[in-house]
């Protein structure tokens, strides 16, 4: 299984991919993850990969081979949709963050991204931020998105929750579990 998690630096994509990796590991799979650190993390477009199976060699997913593209932002879903395989799916947090090129008026934010992606791909959207805010902390957005993604990745709900419990900061365990469930139940 090839999973790609994309978003804007600071949105929590790294933690999401780590939870996916750990969950797959606990199911007995060989797992590799690839992350982004350093300058690219500062509000830029960020990409992490998770691959699991009987034997995994390269830690990144190649263009044309991604099963599930999880995007924390619309434009980023569009930017990386060409990584998908023919019947790959997109999970997209329906949120817009303007890149600086748009803020300064050098470029325009593309219109109708979801509708256009729908023409070629199966896409599931979620307003993760709204749900996270409802739960009282916009930071658990990543757990909401993970919840929806988990349903398409597989494994049992309790396996995911067990890994979340071991991974997120102790004070936020219950909140993250609730957020995950909200995404999972959609």
């Amino acid at each position: 299984m090839n999973i790609m998690v994309v978003g804007v630096g600071g949105q929590g994509t790294l933690l999401t991919s780590r939870i996916i990796g750990k969950t797959a590991l606990e199911q007995g799979y060989d797992v590799k993850l690839s992350e982004v650190h350093g300058m690219a993390q500062r509000g830029g477009s960020v990409v992490t990969f998770v691959r699991f199976g009987n034997k995994v060699y390269e830690p990144v997913c190649e263009e044309g081979e991604v099963d599930i593209l999880i995007s924390f932002e619309r434009l980023e879903a569009l930017r990386y949709a060409h990584f998908l395989k023919k019947d790959g799916i997109i999970i997209c947090n329906d949120h817009r963050i303007d890149p600086m090129t748009v803020v300064i008026g050098a470029k325009e934010y593309p219109q109708g991204i979801i509708e256009n992606l729908q023409k070629e791909h199966k896409i599931y959207t979620i307003n993760g931020l709204e749900i996270a805010k409802e739960l009282g902390n916009s930071k658990v957005l990543n757990s909401v998105v993970l919840g929806l993604s988990a349903k398409h990745i597989g494994f049992k709900e309790e396996d995911w929750l067990a890994v979340i419990e071991k991974t997120v900061p102790p004070k936020t365990i219950e909140l993250n579990k609730t957020a995950f469930k909200r995404g999972y139940e959609i």
Partner: peptide, 16 residues
């Protein structure tokens, strides 16, 4: 290679 879909034109999102 295995590429199926064309890369879309998108505004860059450099780090800031």
């Amino acid at each position: 290679d295995n590429i199926v879909f064309d890369k879309a034109e998108t505004p860059n999102r450099p780090p800031i």
